[in-house]
Nucleic acid binder design. Structure first.
Lengths: 342, 342
DNA sequence: TTGAAAGCGATACCAC
DNA sequence: GTGGTATCGCTTTCAA
């Protein structure tokens, strides 16, 4: 940007060292240095060593902006989640970016705040960086967002839900099925009173709807519902559960929309001296066990959030490698796990 | 969901539209379009409108790679955290990136896994994207990492800790002070038995050391310590607390190294029918309240994680704007909050 | 196996 | 206020 002092003691070069500098020092052409970096197998071993020495000597750091501009491959991946502070999404991103990083890609993160319009403007912004692919949460996007994604002409992977008509690839599972499964489980177990502790989250609402529909069909219509705002927290779980309990819900089964909420609910129930699961049964949603050997067990809907991240990464990577990837719909499934009572 | 129909005539451009295309359509030079985008105030209103119409018409998306290469400002910010799945770091990043985004920057995220060597290689990789600034967690970095950061010649903000000798700017608070404060609080309260529930986290260890040092000075040497591995979880808190309880720690005060662990510990204590805080007192670390109105209160070390993210962003932004930013050390402090007993 | 030349898509600098 | 020209640092294509 500016080269003020005479410099040239080599240290503190104002202008950072470029591929040309390395080439000069190694006595080869720039393109050869580029090959050493990107296709080392296409370079003679002697040349390779010479160049690598020069790279080490100069402390050369490749400029991906220049590389990306020339090659039209930025090696950047965009990832958009509703909330980074939500551990469920955070962990998915963790596994996703680990795998992408191993494949040579860096992750550009964006937060949509569960809002479609915010997602849209985020997509507009993030596409300026010319990502090679994009990771989206959910399957609901604004028409304008879809248009931009289509125009960008890059692989898109939608996650956390499932649809027969993905934009490109989708990795997730059916939230309707989850709601149904839990409802049937409750009915099977013969619980009299049934409650819901749920976040104002789109997918949580999906589960809740199908949950209620099944119960209704079975003739159970008086379900106590306690809704808490996003982002969820341990405290929100306590408060939400307290609301149910205060309303006279002193025995029965509660379907919680997340592990975090269930953990808070657990604390609230215990603090009142109620027994789990004898008096209050709790079904969580996530893949965290909450109970150590010494405590009452809980039933939970388990899914593998690591798998979602990894499969999503795999889908993108295989496209970048031009491998035939014909599986456009990846259902990672879920399990209803009944923790055994000690 | 699907926009299969032919749509406009213009869609599906193989080559994406460039600044030149917009310029041609608007009948101006490319540089004028660039000005419309970056310095709209330096363009005549009539020209502005003409160009903006052309931009809308073409669906032009600026190429930041090209822009960054030419201007040497990538508008990318690198952020490295030990663990994205840890809600404490995730929330800091949330606030950090929100503010950076508002200022026109996008965040490139990396995870060091609490390992210095991993941080080093991450820095090496991420610097290839030529970020305009970098957000680091902690103040301990390998010599090689420091060298690279110095060579990159960009603003660096270290966070979550404090030091008189930051690489550039540091935003955080003293973990030694936290350990001391809690130890003194315990002594003041006259607790007989004292325990620690701590993660294998660098900063948690810092707090623990000074905590122990103070207690030792006061003559308290038999402190029960339960250490759990990272990443921490609700379950880890339960298990770690169970270990303490099983060892006969049935009354006294426990200093937990995080809110998450404390939440798990709380559940474990309650599940055994022990009373909080009468029998077991618990001090957490974080800024989450765990207790609703209906439950026993806890004492906690509170700090503002939002503030850390925001101040870090402010530090970087003010440097980009060449504002004089002489405060190299930003201590956001902490508070020991005693939740009142109902 | 290696290299020369021609961009990639934008911005900086300096005229007009 | 607006435009020409020269890069920015790298990769692509095609020769040698």
């Amino acid at each position: 940007m500016q080269s003020s002092p005479p410099e040239n003691n080599r240290t503190r070069a104002t202008r950072s060292v470029t591929l040309d500098d390395v080439a000069k020092l190694a006595g080869v052409s720039p393109i050869t240095v580029s090959r050493v970096l990107n296709h080392p197998d296409k370079v003679a071993v002697k040349t390779l060593e010479k160049v690598q020495k020069a790279i080490a000597l100069t402390g050369y750091v490749p400029n991906m902006l220049a590389g990306g501009l020339a090659s039209k491959r930025s090696r950047l991946i965009a990832a958009i989640v509703p909330s980074i502070a939500n551990s469920v999404y955070a962990e998915t991103i963790k596994f996703f970016s680990e795998r992408m990083r191993d494949a040579g890609y860096q992750v550009l993160l964006g937060e949509s705040g569960h809002k479609q319009e915010q997602e849209e403007s985020l997509i507009a912004t993030i596409l300026r960086s010319r990502p090679d692919g994009i990771f989206l949460t959910g399957i609901n996007h604004s028409p304008q967002a879809k248009k931009m994604l289509f125009a960008a002409n890059i692989p898109v992977v939608e996650t956390w839900d499932i649809t027969p008509t993905p934009l490109d690839v989708v990795v997730g599972f059916s939230h309707q099925d989850v709601g149904r499964a839990v409802a049937e489980y409750f009915v099977d177990k013969g619980f009299e009173r049934i409650g819901i502790l749920s976040a104002e989250d789109h997918r949580a609402q999906l589960r809740q709807q199908s949950f209620l529909k099944v119960l209704e069909r079975k003739g159970k219509t008086d379900v106590s519902i306690s809704t808490v705002p996003v982002p969820t927290s341990f405290l929100a779980g306590r408060i939400g559960m307290a609301r149910l309990l205060d309303e006279g819900f002193i025995d029965g089964a509660v379907f919680s929309s997340s592990d975090t909420l269930a953990q808070g609910a657990l604390a609230e129930i215990q603090s009142r001296g109620l027994e789990i699961p004898r008096q209050i049964a709790l079904v969580g949603f996530g893949d965290q066990p909450y109970a150590a050997h010494t405590v009452p067990p809980l039933t939970t809907v388990k899914f593998d959030r690591a798998l979602i991240g990894q499969k999503a990464a795999d889908a993108l990577i295989s496209r970048f490698n031009n491998e035939k990837f014909d599986q456009k719909i990846v259902d990672v499934g879920f399990q209803l796990i009944e923790r055994q009572t000690t």
